[in-house]
Design a protein around this nucleic acid. Structure first.
Lengths: 126, 126
DNA sequence: ACTAGTTAGTAGCAAATAGTTACCATGTTA
DNA sequence: TAACATGGTAACTATTTGCTACTAACTAGT
């Protein structure tokens, strides 16, 4: 069964929910981290500076549920858990990673625009 | 002055904030709406089903501050306000739009993965 | 004149989400 | 014995989001 006309602009379309999940800071950084090789929970925590254990755990769970990431517990001691990207996740990773690249590439222009905007707002407030 | 090494994986890098703003459901849909032509406030409200006036106003304000969208008030009666995409915004629009397209294209696979995941969770709970 | 509708928002409150911190069990290393 | 590693969960707070109602100025219809 196929969804008839997926359209993110329609509020009732499930696409809206998926867009909300993948258009997410942490999801972008996690998918980027897993792009080349599987990484363990605490490995991701070290790669993605400032992510809390809660958000990492929560975001990984959503990504796993959506079929974008797979979780594999390895019975070592202590147990290690390896997260890797699925084939479906791989179809998304290039797109979300280009979002990160855009941010890194255009950060200077954005910061400049913010300064100009804030200067204008100050004039109005004065 | 250029930001030395923009890196979204570093928590202190301003890139992280920018990523958080552009990796946003409403920002994606707004930038997509403005891609072809300028649109007015209520026009956007009609295009993007289910967005509240508050979120639309708030997101437009951020996008304007970041230099991605420009606002032009036209002294008609009643005043109409035209929002259009800036050249900087245009460098981003293709990327965010491909995120929307990905969601619309892969929605069936994601929904299927969710059903499988939930079925597994049910087994565990039983 | 009165009513309803248009324009582009803002204000106030409730609900949902994100973030912070502490803690768990199990085991290795110093 | 104490500190650190593994991968989380629980409780709490702060922030964001969403909903509803409201504004002001004007037009069109009855």
């Amino acid at each position: 069964m196929k969804t008839a006309n997926p359209n993110a602009y329609a509020s009732s379309c499930p696409t809206r929910l998926v867009l909300d999940r993948v258009a997410d800071k942490w999801a972008v950084l996690i998918l980027g981290s897993l792009r080349d090789e599987p990484v363990r929970f605490n490995g991701l925590r070290r790669l993605i500076e400032g992510i809390s254990q809660k958000m990492l755990s929560q975001t990984l769970k959503s990504l796993e549920r959506d079929g974008l990431v797979s979780r594999k517990a390895i019975p070592t001691v202590p147990v290690t858990v390896e997260y890797s990207i699925t084939p479906l996740g791989r179809t998304l990773s290039a797109t979300v990673d280009s979002l990160r690249v855009w941010a890194e590439t255009h950060i200077d222009k954005v910061l400049k625009a913010q300064r100009q905007y804030d200067a204008g707002a100050q004039r109005k407030a004065a």
